[in-house]
Design a protein around this nucleic acid. Structure first.
Lengths: 330, 330
DNA sequence: CTGAAAGCGCTTACAG
DNA sequence: CTGAAAGCGCTTACAG
């Protein structure tokens, strides 16, 4: 059995209260006692039981993070930011890989609730009523990342998706492109789907350029869907000279489609992505894309979680276009 | 305040012992009581306090996973496997992003120890004495992934790195290549460094082919180092026709170097990677590589952790060569 | 400067 | 079928 506070108290001949004070850096003992206790702790290899501590202090120093997909590069980068900041503050993080599954998400919420985490970060998904209610019921700080909700006004950190897409499209237009396609997410997705499509459309419309629905093909943000969507797009609108993809992974799909169909990028087809994931700079050619400060968003989310009175705080992070080699000036 | 077992007991007019039995599916109550209690639980929105439970049962249903880098695609895929299996079994996972830092690793070990996790998975790093001792002292099951240790015989799941590298090199030789370079990890790294270099060397030597140290350039498994190493390699041994990279990310670096230096892959230079990360199939051209069953390794690691009497269990997973488009037959 | 005692929210013999 | 009580390993008033 692991030694307890009682063991070190006995060993030293003091009370457990005194040991507790010493461990926790409170005062109320002389140096003499402190030394003896510390020695005993060392000798017995005593480590305080965080579970017992948690029970009395009702604080576990643990937070939960819900991600739709742990292997996604956006999610992992975000996680890195969250974990870094959490660790600095002495918190551990439990990961929850929801796979965007409703039931699974609810289960995680239950577990997190039972395990009495001190806070929770919910990412990249639409807040359904079932989630919102559960989240409210937990009675702990909640921070949203890459999502927000009018019905459940939790603090959030995100990027302005519509605006980012708008800027990406304007960038393409300024490079001289006139027929611009989009490889989009699901238009029913109010988070990363429709806003980006709207931004694309608005940029085009404002400049009197065509923004027909035949110029957008829908994917699921992942690579394979990017390939397929591009094929569809180029078949329906062969005059497209540039494509805006709603994620870097899909943009890589565009590149892949182009490679296999002997369409040169950027000389015959320009491509701009979204995220600035690690893969963007590793792409061939290196991918021009919309940079989201993902790591910083993770840091910020943790900050909001740990800061007092964060209710209602909203944090919209800046984006920027990172110019690499996939967009040609016409 | 959250309702406690006492609240539901009071509400129902039974003892907390009975409520506890009902919650835990033990027997010792009639249907009548059960119904009432369940109703009260529902009404009060009572959720059992896992911390209190953990204190008495000395089991937290939580495990810790130490990773050198959370954004690495090997690590995240592994994590996915671990988390999936853990979740099935009712366990949560705390992630620890060590950044390969010794002090940080030790800190995580302390925290995990204090939080009384039920088990721990340690990945991809050499087991230094300090780690081994601490791990032993924790008194909980430990499973190693992609590493192993003679001094600390914990169960492990890994691939035979030397053999995998050997096979990759043989594959290149059988394709007719004679001067084969290697973009390696650090030769001082006894886990993913030296064994792969040895495998490469052995394959070459056995067939009377040159295996000079000028044919190997050292990287850190990441992209940028792959680019640099390739430049060095091609300068020192311009007659190289094929390169074996000790990670897919470095292989992408090779591809990138080739692209920027107008060396066609695979017509002028063949490349084989290691891992079969997601990026391998997204590469241009799609990367031929050594496939590690990473997800399955995660599953297996969790299985070993949860299985009784796993001490001394060793699990060497099979690899295979995945042929894509970066190796040319000479 | 120090200790005895209550209490955090549960589970688990033990007794009925 | 059910309850009173001890105990898990701590922290924190309270008293001295």
């Amino acid at each position: 059995m692991k030694p307890t506070i009682r063991d070190v108290a006995k060993q030293t001949g003091v009370s457990i209260a005194t040991v507790s004070r010493i461990i926790n850096g409170l005062d109320g003992y002389n140096e003499e006692t402190k030394k003896k206790v510390l020695a005993a702790i060392d000798e017995l290899k005593y480590t305080p039981n965080a579970i017992a501590r948690g029970l009395v202090s009702s604080s576990t120093h643990t937070i939960g993070v819900l991600l739709p997909c742990v292997t996604d590069s956006f999610a992992t980068r975000l996680l890195q930011g969250i974990e870094d900041r959490a660790r600095e503050r002495g918190y551990s993080v439990i990961i929850c890989n929801t796979e965007s599954d409703g039931e699974r998400t609810l289960e995680y919420l239950d577990v997190l609730s039972e395990k009495r985490v001190d806070g929770l970060i919910f990412t990249s998904e639409w807040i359904r009523t079932a989630y919102g209610e559960r989240l409210n019921g937990m009675g702990i700080p909640v921070v949203l990342v890459s999502t927000s909700s009018d019905s459940y006004p939790f603090p959030f950190v995100k990027v302005d998706d519509r605006r980012a897409a708008y800027q990406a499209t304007v960038y393409l237009i300024e490079k001289g492109h006139r027929v611009i396609g989009m490889v989009a997410g699901n238009p029913e997705d109010p988070i990363a789907g429709s806003p980006r499509i709207e931004g694309w459309r608005q940029a085009l419309l404002e400049r009197g350029l065509p923004a027909d629905s035949r110029q957008v093909a829908v994917g699921d943000f992942h690579f394979a869907s990017g390939v397929t969507a591009t094929g569809l797009l180029m078949m329906r609108s062969p005059d497209i000279t540039a494509i805006f993809a709603a994620s870097d992974e899909m943009a890589l799909g565009v590149l892949s489609w182009a490679y296999h169909n002997k369409v040169a990028v950027p000389s015959s087809l320009s491509v701009i992505g979204y995220d600035d994931a690690q893969a963007a700079e590793m792409a061939i050619p290196p991918l021009t894309t919309v940079h989201q400060p993902i790591y910083e968003m993770g840091l910020k989310a943790a900050d909001l979680l740990f800061s007092e009175a964060s209710m209602g705080k909203e944090c919209v992070m800046p984006i920027k276009i990172v110019e690499r080699d996939t967009v040609r000036k016409l």
